[in-house]
Design a protein around this nucleic acid. Structure first.
Lengths: 261, 261
DNA sequence: AAGCGCTTGTGAACGTATGCACAAAGTTGC
DNA sequence: GCAACTTTGTGCATACGTTCACAAGCGCTT
């Protein structure tokens, strides 16, 4: 049942119409960062080559990315730094101020609340919320931590659009549900679990351990290559596997604070 | 083997032998997390459909990802949870213990040092380093913070392989250089800048503000769609752009100081 | 042993992303 | 005003990633 099919595809830059490729969007913040650094040094214009180097990408990729926003460069000259900063900011929606609530004021929540990178880029941390009565009432980064009870009212009355979940894993889904019910339409999830949300709500997950694991993969690979040339790592025996990982149903991770009631 | 094969197909499958696609690697930690959760609940076997749901991906993608590691499933049954946990762990290099140094014990450094997700997954935070004399000597997460002077010796004597840079941006490159010189071969960078490293050293960048910006992009786009049906937002508001930035686009050599007034 | 239902593993189609190379379009110098 | 030079924007080729659809394989029942 083989059907010969001509691979002819008439596809004319459809993404340009109003959609920017996801890969491009994910790089825009880096360009913005590099441009801001250049602006602070008083640089007025920059070529794609220079900007690409500053952002850690190739110049062709940079140009193609920017071309999705429009023709904002001048041939023979380059890009005007201030103008490009504005265009990228506008595209990312940073010309308006976004209100953020951070839920879970543990170590990470503290760090996020005090993180300057948020406020300096169009984001306002408008509220801090925690379940622990010992933390409620505390002042962190100039804000008083409130309890979980008032979460719904806080979000809706302040008009908060984005929620940052920095709670332990088991509590995350419930917090997320309440955030969404209160009107939040974007969630940044630091908890090590998948959050289920209705259509129209976006979740981005950031897992610090994941990043280390990806790093470890490449480290290990590199180390293995050095030790044995190009010897492929063969699957090990099952007995060894079970021995290394432990018996079935043994505790793989230790204690975890339970916040679900 | 019963079916005739196209002549030049072998090359694309070659990546499977010792190379796993980067996109797959980036998802393995999520599968591992989901599997660990299942194991804690005493689940013995799991189908690709169930595991995919738990990990937040499609089942076809999951199966293809796992197929790059080998044939570790049983048709008609699914995957044995413990065995798969071991196989993914081994592939990620988590069967050995990785030693990590965290440089920059500010808010974020504190959070990272206390973050349980590291230690529970094959990573040992072996040292904490900070430049600030007021922080040096402090005990964080059971470790004493040491000064920058001893960074090189700490890394090499403890055999640390991975460095986590949680310093302010301007200091990051110098710290990174010293880490690499001392023997670190993997760097996790939380500073908002590009780190330049020699070949053979890997850098992964995590920027918290970047994640929020990507979220804002989608939020803004969705909001625009609601206001105007599905009308594409045309980026032609040149006058608005100029008003916000304050500098005419046509004069490229004009200084920023003039535009400020 | 044969049939049936279920699930994996994978070929193939489709879509997206990347990098090269160069024409188009600007600036500079004379 | 024109030629030489610089840099953008993009068509094209290729690589990579995702999704579909289904044969192959396994266990269970008859």
């Amino acid at each position: 049942m083989t059907r010969p099919r001509p691979a002819r595809l008439v596809r004319s830059e459809r993404a340009t119409r109003d959609g920017i490729p996801e890969a491009t969007v994910s790089r825009l913040p880096f360009y913005l960062q590099a441009l801001t650094a250049l602006a602070e040094r008083g640089v007025a214009t920059v070529s794609s080559e220079e900007l690409a180097t500053a952002a850690g990408v190739g110049s062709a990729k940079l140009r193609k990315d920017l071309s999705h926003l429009g023709s904002y460069g001048t041939r023979g000259v380059g890009y005007e730094v201030q103008y490009l900063i504005y265009q990228i900011s506008r595209e990312l929606g940073l010309t308006q101020d976004w209100k953020v609530v951070i839920v879970g004021i543990g170590n990470l929540g503290h760090a996020l609340a005090n993180y300057g990178g948020f406020t300096s880029r169009g984001f306002t941390v408008a509220a801090l919320v925690d379940a622990d009565a010992r933390v409620v009432g505390e002042t962190v980064a100039g804000l008083t931590v409130t309890g979980l009870d008032s979460l719904d009212q806080t979000v809706s009355s302040l008009g908060i659009q984005i929620g940052v979940v920095a709670t332990p894993g088991p509590a995350a889904q419930e917090i997320c549900d309440r955030l969404v019910a209160a009107g939040v339409t974007g969630v940044l999830n630091f908890a090590p679990c998948v959050l289920t949300v209705p259509d129209g709500v976006m979740v981005r997950r950031v897992d610090l351990a994941t990043e280390l694991q990806i790093l470890a993969f490449h480290e290990q690979r590199r180390a293995a290559g050095r030790l044995a040339g190009e010897m492929p790592a063969e699957p090990q025996d099952l007995s060894e596997a079970l021995g290394a990982i432990g018996e079935p149903r043994t505790t793989l991770t230790k204690s975890r604070a339970e916040a679900a009631g």
